[in-house]
């Protein structure tokens, strides 16, 4: 039985659809006057953040509280990452406190995997983003957002994203969001195309289940969803691209480019956006942009994940996998 959520690649199609369907149920809770379920009453969840990320932390926190869990926020200092004992020591401290789940954000790729597999702790581990590796709940909330927009809220139940064309644009090399999305979208049957300057695509990408293009304009007309990734300005200091202007011109999404997309297609962004860099204000503020929905959907997805991993009576994520066999 799956006790942890470390990588989007660990999810089967049925795992993922179950999470999306459960998230739809959770979303209905948000429409009720009392937005709380008793599902995790008496369970303790700790949000262990070695990296600052207020938006991800409060999303998890909202999800945990709506499920009536006891929540502990533990912000470890970024500097402690440099000295390795801190992760183990912190884990053992949490273990002694009897926590049921650890939501971990860490700057080092693989830290959640280590936490889950090193015998330091018994709790379920949920990866809230590790280095440039994975951010599975982000991929799930993105898939949820796409399914709602492209298939339909009710029509989407039980469905995957088969046949949908998703384009992910930007700093693929340094992006855990891109890695998670490629894995999950492929599992859900979507066709993924990555678009970036060649410097921002990892060596080895040819083994990923997706296409790679260097030409955004060619890809836009066949995209059902275009996901713009944040591009840090500092990357240009390491010669990943010459100037901010050149990057925007070749890979940024502005109104003219958006017009090349099919009418039904959506623009997504995991946030925070760098307006004027990868996305113009015109696009960011348009109806086709799902940034705000993604935030709301993030809470539903995280409720679903916590519920399925910790819910007790209900099947946890892999349970469904066994049933399907």
């Amino acid at each position: 039985m799956m006790r942890h959520l470390i990588s989007a690649a660990d999810l089967t199609r049925d795992d993922a659809v179950l999470i999306l369907d459960t998230a739809e149920e959770m979303a209905r809770v948000a429409d009720r006057p009392i937005k709380k379920l008793p599902a995790l009453r008496g369970r303790t969840v700790v949000n262990l953040f070695f990296e600052d990320s207020t938006r991800t932390r409060i999303s998890f926190e909202a999800a945990e509280k709506r499920l009536s869990a006891d929540v502990i926020n533990f912000a470890a200092k970024g500097s402690s990452v440099s000295k390795g004992e801190s992760l183990k020591d912190t884990a053992q401290t949490l273990e002694a406190m009897g926590v049921d789940a650890v939501v971990i954000r860490h700057g080092a790729s693989g830290a959640p995997y280590r936490l889950a597999t090193s015998g330091w702790i018994d709790a379920s581990v949920i990866n809230a983003g590790d280095g440039t590796h994975q951010h599975p709940t982000q991929a799930l909330l993105d898939a949820f957002t796409m399914r709602r927009r492209l298939v339909g809220r009710d029509a989407g139940l039980g469905q995957d994203l088969a046949g949908k064309n998703v384009t992910i644009v930007g700093d693929i090399l340094h992006s855990r969001v891109a890695r998670s999305n490629v894995d999950l979208l492929h599992t859900l049957g979507a066709e993924v195309t990555l678009v970036a300057p060649p410097t921002l695509v990892p060596v080895g990408v040819e083994h990923w289940p997706c296409e790679v293009s260097y030409d955004l304009d060619r890809v836009l007309p066949k995209s059902d969803a275009v996901m713009m990734l944040r591009v840090q300005r500092e990357r240009m200091n390491a010669a990943f691209f010459p100037t901010e202007r050149e990057y925007s011109r070749r890979y940024g999404l502005d109104g003219d480019r958006m017009a090349k997309m099919p009418e039904h297609a959506v623009v997504m962004h995991p946030g925070p956006m760098v307006r004027g860099m990868e996305i113009t204000a015109e696009v960011a503020d348009s109806d086709r942009c799902t940034v705000v929905e993604q935030v709301a959907n993030g809470v539903s997805i995280r409720m679903a994940v916590l519920y399925l991993l910790l819910g007790g009576n209900e099947p946890a994520v892999t349970h469904s996998r066994t049933e399907e066999k």
Binding site: S109, G110, G131, R179, P202, V203, G204, V205, H207, W208
Partner: peptide
């Protein structure tokens, strides 16, 4: 650099040592 740069580093998100 954290590991050999190639298929595995691309997946694991660890800095590549080409």
């Amino acid at each position: 650099a954290q590991m050999n740069e190639g298929v595995v580093s691309a997946e694991l998100g660890l800095g590549g040592w080409p």
